[in-house]
């Protein structure tokens, strides 16, 4: 018997009956095989997804629309630029993406904000799409409980060609006690729209990455907006109490985990059978 006679569908391809499990994950499981290799159809689907993800990296931030969206939610919104002039420079020079352009620094200084409890920055990062699609949704969940805490929120910054650390000079200029950066994460093949949130106690230029906490993969099919909001609030509350962030601020929250106790998945039946 040859390989092609054993298949249910495409000649030469051996299907995987466990493909039904793909309802539990976006991972590319049960792709089948041609010999030991990837069959033609999943191979070409991959090539298409890669081409799309490459294109997403280069999609520019729609600043006009985002300004309108953010102005509906904040009394003060400021549009800022990093020192990276364009996408090419942004990709090769991450150092420039962490610094504010001269114009942007002057703009912030002119606002004459001496201090605030919280500085929020919305940054394109590597996926403007994540910002276009999810920034407003997350802010709508996050803002009411933050306002309930009586914290003074500084002007909201919308930043083009920015990296995570650009929240530091922004928070510094606004005298912020805490900084939150919403940023487009680098697009994956299955997730060109993933939003990340980075939290820094006393954001100031020169902060190390180990002084930040991160909540990542926020998108409809990833970390839910609800769970992300709970985690971010936990970080804000704990940091306010302990006056620090980063690896010393362990995420010990007992957030209602989607994981349960890890049992109940099909590989681990509760009872012997």
């Amino acid at each position: 018997m040859t390989d092609s006679e054993r298949t249910s569908g495409v000649p030469g391809v051996i299907d995987n009956p466990w493909r039904t499990l793909s309802r539990h994950t976006d991972a590319r499981i049960g792709l089948g095989r041609a010999g030991g290799s990837l069959p033609t159809a999943p191979h070409l689907e991959f090539q298409l997804a890669h081409a799309r993800a490459r294109d997403a990296v280069h999609l520019p931030l729609d600043s006009e629309t985002m300004m309108a969206t953010l102005n509906e939610r904040f009394s003060q919104v400021v549009r800022l630029q990093s020192r990276a002039q364009d996408r090419g420079e942004y990709l090769r020079r991450p150092d420039l993406g962490r610094l504010l352009s001269d114009d942007s620094r002057e703009q912030l200084a002119a606002m004459q904000v001496e201090q605030c409890d919280l500085s929020i920055s919305v940054v394109d990062g590597l996926s403007a799409r994540a910002i276009h699609e999810h920034a407003a949704t997350l802010l709508d969940r996050l803002l009411p409980p933050i306002r309930e805490r009586g914290w003074h929120i500084g002007p909201l910054a919308l930043v083009e060609q920015g990296r995570v650390a650009i929240g530091d000079p922004i928070g510094e200029a606004l005298g912020a006690r805490m900084g939150v950066v919403l940023i487009g994460e680098r697009p994956g093949l299955s997730s060109p729209d993933s939003l990340g949130v980075y939290f820094t106690w006393q954001p100031r230029s020169g902060r190390r990455d180990s002084e930040r906490n991160c909540v990542s993969n926020i998108r409809p099919r990833g970390q839910s907006f609800e769970a992300a909001t709970t985690l971010i609030l936990y970080l804000l509350d704990e940091a306010s109490r302990r006056e620090l962030s980063g690896v010393e601020l362990k995420d010990d929250s007992e957030v209602a985990s989607q994981l349960g106790d890890g049992r109940g998945n099909f590989l681990l039946p509760d009872s012997a059978d």
Binding site: A27, S257, L259, G260, L268
Partner: peptide
Amino acid sequence: QPNHPTDSATGIAASILDGLL
């Protein structure tokens, strides 16, 4: 490497099974 964006137990298990097989 059976990573899952929300650490879903069943999602992780699906990738583990795929890998082992």
